[in-house]
Design a binder for these strands. Structure first.
Length: 455
RNA sequence: GUGGAUGUAGCUCAGUUGGUUAGAGCACCGGAUUGUGGUUCCGGGGGUCGAGGGUUCGAGUCCCUUCUUCCACCCCA
C-alpha cells in the first residue's frame, strides 16, 4: 500500500530555486567571515548527551533531540525504572547521544579536545544545521542552519568590535536594515547585586527581556511573582526607564554603579564604553544601541551580549551571541574566554523573502542544450559537448530521442538560453543550428563561434 | 509543555439545512504540429475528502479520538 510521503514536523525540503537563494546567503556570510580571518570547521550532527545536557538551561534540555541507543536499548533498564516514572533517569539509560542544539557548545568541546592542534587565539566559523524539539511556528523550525563565528582564547574587546563589523557587513551586503542591540551580562549582574538579589539574576534578566513585549507593569508583576521584593523592583525602575543616547546611558550607569560601589557593574559599563569608542572611528551602517533589556536566555554568557533584529520584517532575532568566559571549563580547560555570534540563515531567508530582496542572481544552470535527434546525431554531439564543457560552459544533451516539442519544452522550463540543433544537414555542413530561446532567433555557426558567443 | 485555528487532486481552493457518480483553475500526459519551446484550441489520467472510530436509511458535511500544518504563550536563530 502506498503511503503518503511526509517529513518530520518542523523540517523542510529545499527545491533548486530555494537552494540558489540559500547558497546566496551562505556564500555572502562565508565570504565575510573569511575576510576577518576566520577559518572553517565542522563537527558531527550528534554529540554525546553528556556534552549537551545542562548547558542550555532547563528549557534547553527539554528541547534536545535524543537518539535511542542502538541494539536492545532497554537492556539497561528494569521494571522499577518504568514504575518510578522518572523520565530523566530513564532517558540516561536508553539514550547516550543527542543531536546538537547549537554550534557553540560543540565548539567548546572541539577546542578542548583539539587544543594542541589549533592556534590560539582561535578564530573559526561553522555553518551547519542544528536541531531543537521546539514547537514549530513562524520563523521557528526543528532543523535549521546556524552560521557561527567565534574567537576563543582572547579577552580582547577588539573581537567584540570585529563581530559588530561582521554583523554590519553581512546585513549591509544582504540589504537588510537592522538594529544591532548590545548589552553586557556584567551590567545585569551589577544591577541584580545593587538591588540585593544577586542570585535572581536569571529571573531578573528573563523578566526585563520582555519589557518591549509585555510592558513595564507586567514586567514588574513578573518580578514580584519571582520573589523580588517591592523595594528592589522600585530600585530597578530607573534602569528600566533608562533612555537617551548610548553615551547618556553609559554615563548614568557609570554614576549608578560607582554610587553603589558595584565593581562588576562598573566593569561591564567600561567594556561597553570601550566598544563604543572603537566604533567611533569606523563607519557602521546599522544602528548600534545599548539596550539594557536585552538579556538572552543562554546561561553561559558572561560579558557582551548581542542581538540583531530586522527593522522591516516581523520575525524574531536573526542573529545573536555574546561572550562566554568559561564554556571550555566544563570540559577541563580553564581560563579560556571566547566570544561569538550566530546568524540564523533560515530566518534571514524568511526576511529576504518578505522584503522581496533576493537579487536576480544568475542561476548557474545549463547554458546550452543539444537536442537529441537520434543515434548518429548523439555520437556526433558528444565530442562537441565535451569541447564546450572544457571551455567552462554548462551544457547538456537531452538524454532521450524524444519529440522535438518535449525537448524544447524541457529547455524552456529549465531556462536554457541556447538550444543547439544538429541533424543530418548540420552534420554534412559541419555547422550548428543555434536557437536563442529569448527571442527565437536561429543562426548557423561553428562550435568555436558558439563558445565565444556564450562565454 | 499550554491554548486557538486548519486539513478536499501534485499545488491553490469551491462543495447548499446531511441526499445521485465530489468539482474548478494551475500543473502533468496526449493530439492539432514526425526539425522548433514559451501563446492558443481539443482530449486524457488522476481523490481512502488527513487517519481511526461513532451517530444516521444515507457523512466531504454532525460528534469523539489522533495526527499534520499554521498562529499565540513559553523559549529561541
Amino acid at each position: 500500500m502506498a503511503q503518503k510521503p511526509s517529513i518530520p514536523k518542523g523540517t523542510r525540503d529545499f527545491l533548486p530555486l530555494e537552494m540558489g537563494r540559500r547558497n546566496y546567503i551562505f556564500n555572502t556570510i562565508k565570504k565575510i567571515f573569511q575576510l576577518y580571518g576566520y577559518l572553517p570547521i565542522e563537527t558531527p550532527a550528534m554529540e554525546n548527551l553528556s556534552t549537551l545536557t545542562g548547558k542550555y538551561g532547563e528549557e534547553g534540555d527539554r528541547l534536545l533531540f535524543k537518539i535511542l541507543n542502538s541494539g536492545d536499548y532497554l537492556k539497561k533498564t528494569n521494571d522499577f525504572d518504568f514504575k518510578e516514572g522518572n523520565s530523566n533517569k530513564l532517558t540516561s539509560l536508553i539514550s547516550e547521544k543527542g543531536l546538537r542544539y547549537d554550534l557553540t557548545v560543540p565548539f567548546a568541546r572541539f577546542v578542548v579536545q583539539h587544543r594542541n592542534d589549533i592556534v590560539f587565539p582561535f578564530k573559526r566559523y561553522q555553518i551547519q544545521p542544528v536541531w531543537r524539539a521546539d514547537k514549530p511556528q513562524k520563523g521557528r523550525y526543528r532543523e535549521f542552519f546556524q552560521c557561527d563565528v567565534d574567537a576563543i582564547g582572547t579577552t580582547s574587546l577588539l573581537n567584540e568590535l570585529e563581530l559588530i563589523q561582521i554583523m554590519d557587513d553581512v546585513f549591509d551586503t544582504l540589504k537588510i536594515n537592522v538594529e544591532i542591540k548590545i548589552n553586557n551580562r556584567k551590567i545585569l549582574s551589577g544591577i541584580a547585586e545593587i538591588i540585593g538579589f544577586p542570585d535572581k539574576i536569571i529571573d531578573i534578566t528573563i523578566a526585563i527581556d520582555k519589557l518591549d513585549k509585555i510592558g513595564l507593569e507586567n514586567v514588574n508583576a513578573e518580578l514580584l511573582s519571582k520573589g523580588i521584593s517591592e523595594k528592589a523592583i522600585e530600585q530597578l525602575q530607573p534602569v528600566l526607564n533608562l533612555s537617551g543616547t548610548n553615551s547618556d546611558k553609559i554615563l548614568k550607569l557609570k554614576k549608578m554603579f560607582s554610587d553603589f560601589n558595584s565593581e562588576t557593574g562598573l566593569k561591564g559599563v567600561n567594556e561597553i564604553e570601550t566598544i563604543f569608542e572603537y566604533l567611533e572611528n569606523i563607519k557602521i551602517k546599522s544602528d548600534v544601541t545599548l539596550d539594557l533589556t536585552l538579556a538572552r536566555g543562554l546561561d553561559y554568557y558572561t560579558g557582551a551580549i548581542f542581538e540583531v533584529k530586522a527593522k522591516d520584517a516581523k520575525i524574531g532575532s536573526i542573529c545573536g551571541g555574546g561572550r562566554y568566559d568559561n564554556l571550555t571549563g566544563i570540559f577541563g580547560l580553564k581560563d579560556v574566554s571566547g566570544v561569538g555570534i550566530s546568524f540564523g540563515a533560515d530566518r534571514i531567508y524568511d526576511v529576504l523573502e518578505q522584503l522581496n530582496a533576493f537579487p536576480d542572481y544568475a542561476v548557474s544552470s545549463t547554458k546550452i542544450m543539444f537536442v537529441n535527434f537520434g543515434d548518429k546525431e548523439e555520437k556526433y554531439c558528444i565530442p562537441l559537448l565535451a569541447k564546450i564543457r572544457k571551455a567552462g560552459i554548462n551544457a547538456e544533451i537531452y538524454p532521450e530521442q524524444a519529440k522535438m516539442k518535449k525537448q524544447m519544452n524541457y529547455a524552456n522550463k529549465k531556462n536554457v538560453p541556447y538550444v543547439v540543433l544538429v541533424g543530418e544537414n548540420e552534420m554534412k555542413q559541419n555547422i550548428l543550428s543555434v536557437k536563442n530561446m529569448d527571442n527565437g532567433e536561429q543562426k548557423s555557426i561553428s562550435v568555436e563561434e558558439l563558445i565565444d558567443m556564450v562565454k
